[in-house]
């Protein structure tokens, strides 16, 4: 995939399309758009950067997964098998791009996957039918372009060969398959994202952590006592055990009594 940042207007259509395509739950994202403000008044500019799984050629998540739940298929898509995933989150820790998340337990549909890791699939079900991924279809500015990089006649191959492109964290050797045109260092750099996060963003993140606990018992709320949150996480973890044990018990009951 090629993302032409010169054409991105930050409308979030791609995020909405992805959420709608997969029913992505609240608090997790398969794709999202990062926003930064540059410059000093009156010379300011707002820049955007859509993010998603980079479907790396050398994916650390695939290498580190202990149960082969995640794999790279013959077409280069990095995919997830829910039925093999044990929810250990090794791949979430391994992914340098934050492209993976644990599906929350609270979901509406009875048969929807829960507490397993999920990620962008490049909409493989659409691509197999000759369609483009939902985010590409929904992009109003034509900023997202999808195609086969190995086909020299494809638009993506032409763009990658003609334009100045960049990838995220090239130094890690993952060889990402998502290329950016017109990437701005102010938004692409990880350290900059941490150092120059707005106060408002930090507060929003803190609120998010307090309201979306996640299922990893690991969040530390910035500005509050670290040890308090370490202790709280442990208390929450212990409190979750009876609930999970009931799930295990029900699974055994179902296995034995049908």
């Amino acid at each position: 995939m090629v993302i032409d940042l010169r054409k991105c207007i930050g409308c979030m259509s791609c995020v909405v399309a992805c959420k709608a395509e997969y029913g992505v739950p609240l608090g997790v994202w398969r794709t999202w758009v990062k926003v930064a403000d540059k410059g000093r008044y009156p010379h300011t500019k707002r820049v955007f950067m859509p993010r998603l799984c980079n479907h790396c050629d050398y994916p650390i998540c695939v290498r580190n997964c202990p149960t082969q739940a995640t794999f790279k298929n013959e077409d280069g898509f990095v995919l997830q098998r829910y039925n093999r995933c044990i929810g250990c989150r090794t791949c979430v820790v391994a992914c340098p791009y934050n492209a993976r998340h644990l599906l929350p337990e609270a979901r509406k549909g009875k048969n929807l996957p829960r507490l397993v890791v999920d990620k962008c699939t490049f909409c493989i079900h659409r691509v197999k039918k000759g369609l483009v991924p939902a985010c590409v279809q929904a992009c109003v500015g034509g900023a997202r372009i999808f195609g086969d990089l190995n086909d020299p006649k494809s638009q993506v191959a032409k763009l990658v060969s003609k334009e100045q492109v960049s990838v995220l964290k090239p130094e890690l050797g993952t060889s990402p398959s998502v290329y950016y045109i017109g990437g701005d260092w102010a938004i692409m750099d990880e350290n900059h994202s941490y150092k120059f996060r707005s106060r408002q963003l930090v507060e929003e993140f803190n609120t998010f952590k307090k309201n979306h606990f996640g299922d990893a018992f690991a969040d530390i709320v910035e500005g509050e006592s670290t040890m308090y949150w370490v202790g709280k996480n442990m208390a929450d973890f212990i409190a979750s055990i009876p609930h999970k044990a009931a799930g295990v018990f029900n699974a055994f009951k179902k296995l034995i009594f049908g």
């Binding site: 990062k34 926003v35 963003l201 530390i220």
Partner: peptide, 14 residues
């Protein structure tokens, strides 16, 4: 420049 919006990511191991 300042980052004003982003997705929030949980720490995975705690």
């Amino acid at each position: 420049s300042v980052i004003i919006s982003n997705a929030f990511h949980h720490v995975a191991w705690g």
